[in-house]
Design a protein around this nucleic acid. Structure first.
Lengths: 238, 238
DNA sequence: CGTTTACTTGAGTAAACTCAACAATTGTGG
DNA sequence: CCACAATTGTTGAGTTTACTCAAGTAAACG
């Protein structure tokens, strides 16, 4: 049981180490656990979730489906991420959250979570920081999609995911599990799957990174960050 | 003096009305005021600001300059917005903030602001909500830039700004001050100024909206929201 | 072992870009 | 108040990146 909050503690501790009190609070908040199969929705666009999830294993994604049926992935949710964090219990979701892979989540009541977190100084500060990191990631996506070529966008996404997974000890220096399809990557970066395919072949030909057996191999991490114009500062905000 | 925090109170009260205590706290925090001329930086990429600004009059923008010299505007800052909110005093800015027009700002010490806000339950909740709204706005930008045509993007931006300005009583139903150049709009939406020009002419020809004398006239607000696929839910998050 | 899902490749198209020139507007100093 | 400079907006012509449509291959799965 205690294992469930480990990635969250890892992540929040980047800001400031959390004491045993905080750990205990989190463990008691996220008492229930549940498994979601791939492609199952954790939260629905337009609904008002009563629960807060802590992702323990697997990947999820925030997404929005347009009128024409196209999909934009708004962010990837990795182990240690808590969502959807609401300000008010009456808040309606303006997007959905879907399991990209099979997921194990720990569940807390939204109202209890909000009260517990805002009433504890350390936790409030830790999640405050966490939300600001999220904002930084979103700004980086705007930058990525708004200004960069497909090639740089994809390289940049790889850098972001590598960095984030490392912070929860799910990546080593030269590889990490990347359970996304080319279609997922396309939906995240505002591209088409066909174009992602061609571009990833290019990245592989350039000996920067290779996607094989659902793993990403960083063949030249430094040069990858370089061509991606990747600035990791935003993950320690700001 | 008391007038300075008015737009902020307006905005935060959307979530939950603030009492006189909060107003007093904010007024004492944001004691100093300062005027910035157009194009002056309020905060610099790579630096560690010691101050938090409350924008009282004028427009500012978060932005990032790429290696090739192109610029992405990451968000527009309107009266009532507080920035840059940092989690830790050691946080380095990963982007700059510039005055789009001449600005009047009220200034607080970053450390005092963080302490005061996190120690007061009501203020913590209000700013917590405010940051989540910001995240919603950023997600909407990702969606906009990632999926929509230039035409819809610009229409959507107009809808967002209209809505946000209304919340601080700076817009009426059919018009608002829009002190942006076509170049600014281009940098915000990941387009070129030339293309923005052609697209805005199209929007005018379609009798949706017209930019004239630094004002935007909404000629058909409903249809504008409609073609923009504008969903205001994200401004009340979530 | 057949079916679905994911990936690959080719050919033609279109939205948005680049470069370039010019007009209109705004701002400034004499 | 005018003349000049700088900024902003406008338009045309040609180019490019990324898209669409389509077909086919490889891999994963029950």
């Amino acid at each position: 049981m205690g294992k469930m909050v480990e990635p969250l503690i890892d992540r929040l501790s980047q800001f400031k180490p959390l004491d045993e009190n905080c750990r205990a609070t989190l463990e008691s908040l996220f008492g229930t656990t549940k498994r979601y199969p791939r492609h199952k929705n954790l939260a629905h666009d337009g609904e008002t979730p009563e629960e807060v999830f802590l992702l323990c294993r697997g990947w999820a994604a925030r997404y929005k489906v347009m009128q024409d049926g196209s999909r934009q992935i708004l962010s990837f949710l990795l182990p240690g991420d808590v969502f959807p964090i609401h300000a008010s219990a009456s808040g309606v979701m303006d997007h959905g959250i879907v399991a990209v892979t099979e997921c194990d989540v720990a569940i807390a009541s939204a109202s209890e979570f909000n009260r517990a977190v805002l009433d504890d100084g350390d936790l409030a500060r830790a999640f405050w920081w966490s939300i600001l990191v999220d904002k930084g990631i979103l700004r980086a996506w705007v930058l990525n999609i708004g200004q960069r070529s497909a090639y740089c966008r994809i390289a940049n996404l790889f850098c972001e995911l590598h960095r984030r997974l490392k912070s929860v000890r799910l990546a080593d220096d030269h590889s990490f599990d990347l359970p996304l399809t080319q279609h997922d990557i396309a939906d995240a970066q505002g591209l088409t799957a066909v174009h992602v395919n061609r571009t990833m072949r290019q990245i592989k030909e350039d000996v920067l990174a290779e996607h094989k057996n659902k793993k990403l191999y960083l063949l030249d991490p430094e040069r990858l960050c370089d061509v991606a114009e990747f600035d990791p500062a935003y993950l320690n905000p700001g």
